[in-house]
Design a protein around this nucleic acid. Structure first.
Lengths: 343, 343
DNA sequence: TTGAAAGCGGTACCAC
DNA sequence: GTGGTACCGCTTTCAA
């Protein structure tokens, strides 16, 4: 006979409401409400009876109505440039885990790196009265800032260490992290740098830091390939960029990529050409994704705690929403150089 | 002077409501409501005045209140086992894209492959009155089925081709896809099979199909390594499984992995051992992720359209919600063998 | 410990 | 084309 499905299922006209439960249990609407939201105010006998009746009637409290009356949606809304990039997917996972079991639900939207979309997404979030908003990256567009600022909604900007966040921020210094990466490579004796990156703000920060350190060492600026596609992170783009770098610059002995996806793509390109890594050319990544731990050779990279950033963002929001005392508005999750074998 | 942040920002006591806008614009509440939801019913003059006033007052319609009155949340809720796995991340991205610009927002939750969590997540979705629910994988737990069935909410089960979905389904036959993979390998002349997979239902279906084809060819069952971790997809697990397979079975000439993450991990393990792929041992994956297109060698795999599945799910839901006629309840997105170089 | 009733911020039907 | 108004389903004083 198999599992039941919807065929032949007759549905009740209308879902039961609190009022129906109250009537069936012989108590008032207010009492039923208390049973679900402040059970300690109700006598045990009443509580049990209401629960029994509710269960029998398949009553499911309408959280929308509840939220509206209590003026809170219990929704945290998150905006990321792209969902499927391993980098942000991890942050989202951290967020989701942090929210698990708290009664808050996660709403998610992607901006595809387009400013106009950011604005409309944020408006949608506010229109739905999100209790908190989290954004991957700093909100730089003045209209968006203004919108958020004026809304009074708690906001966390992630992935950058902002001096003047709209409200709260969690991340690390992209500048310093890339600088540290360059210093590490310098320390390993590399002198002819290649650089593969994108054009978004975070990547630009990384580039600045990296170039600064290289310059400080008295070396010429790296040969660079910038990926102008909206999403500056794909294996494929990394491979192509590496190919150009290799074709146009014979002497390069190390290539720094602004994220691990690009780096692994670059690694594959070397492999395709039979160039030993790091023997002929070294490769360093940024972000410390799973893949870099198992690639051949395993990827030297900068660990920045993508998951932890999301997790921390949820913590900060929750703290604010529960009125926890003296919260920190800006959290530096730091970074560390992970030395493996590719550089 | 830098960007403005929240410091020194004084916030208005309460956000403006429709009533406030109405008063300021000298029209009735009902008119303002129409301006936002059925503008064609309002004269252009009134419409413009209201818009102007609303803008000046920074009025943002409360979608929660609107939804409550109209009995619709305009939220689609999705449940996946894990968010950060490339496989599901793509499906989520497809869903999100499909919803973009429709006025529907995406709510997301992960079950971590735990049945108890599934139930509570679904309850939360229903409690929030999602207009539609989409689930990665069939809902097999009777309580969950019952819950969904009785709720009357449109439901799409993804990633499997169900004969009796709760409501709607979009996916492909895991059984047939794996069977086709085996047939492909058989056709290429491989005879000594290895199998790396997990223990969840979809994986089990793939295993059955694969083994069936192998048996039908008169060959002994593959040597298998099953990953019992809750999440049967990581590069690392693939590498470890491959190591075991290689250590314990000298004669294996091809290994089929139930997803590309495992397959790429396996690929790396071969590389670590200096075993040529497919020369010494071939590797075939399943799912066709980005990484398999650029790995060395590029991965022969089964393409199943992870993104397209999500996209299609959103289409079906939207069609139902807008009352589109004669929709198909079960959509087979099919699969195809992608021959590259690893097998 | 329980109940009555005034919102929460809109939608939509019905008149005019 | 516009306004009046009865809900939508729950939370939360305030009284009893």
């Amino acid at each position: 006979m198999g599992l039941k499905n919807r065929a032949g299922e007759k549905r009740p006209e209308r879902a039961n409401r609190m009022e129906d439960v109250a009537a069936a249990a012989g108590v008032s609407l207010a009492t039923v409400s208390r049973v679900f939201s402040q059970p300690e105010l109700v006598s045990e006998a009443t509580r049990e009876k209401v629960h029994a009746v509710a269960k029998r009637m398949r009553y499911l409290p309408n959280l929308l109505a509840g939220g509206m009356a209590a003026n809170q949606s219990r929704v945290i809304s998150a905006m990321v440039p792209v969902i499927s990039s391993a980098i942000f997917a991890q942050t989202i996972e951290g967020l989701s885990s942090g929210l698990h079991g708290t009664g808050y639900e996660l709403m998610l939207s992607q901006s595809s790196y387009e400013p106009e979309q950011e604005y409309s997404i944020l408006r949608a979030f506010l229109g739905r009265r999100a209790d908190g908003i989290v954004v991957a990256g700093a909100v730089r567009d003045p209209h968006c800032r203004e919108l958020l600022l004026h809304s009074g909604t708690p906001v966390v900007e992630m992935w950058e260490l902002l001096e003047e966040p709209i409200d709260m921020a969690v991340g690390f210094s992209n500048h310093h992290a890339a600088q540290a990466a360059a210093d590490y490579l310098l320390g390993r004796g590399y002198r002819n740098f290649g650089f593969i990156g994108g054009t978004d703000q975070r990547t630009a920060d990384r580039q600045k830091g990296f170039y600064e350190a290289v310059r400080a060492a008295g070396l010429p600026a790296p040969r660079q390939v910038l990926i102008h596609s909206p999403s500056p992170s794909s294996f494929d783009a990394g491979g192509q960029a590496m190919a150009r770098l290799l074709d146009e610059n014979a002497g390069i002995d190390v290539v720094f990529c602004t994220n691990d996806l690009l780096a692994v793509g670059a690694l594959f390109e070397c492999q395709r050409r039979g160039l030993p890594v790091p023997g002929r050319v070294a490769v360093m990544g940024f972000s410390d994704l799973d893949i870099g731990q198992v690639s051949v050779p395993p990827l030297t990279t900068v660990q920045v705690g993508a998951y932890e950033i999301g997790r921390q963002a949820s913590r900060m929001l929750l703290a604010r929403l529960t009125g926890a005392p003296q919260e920190t508005r800006i959290v530096d999750t730091g970074f560390s150089i992970v030395r493996r074998q590719s550089a």
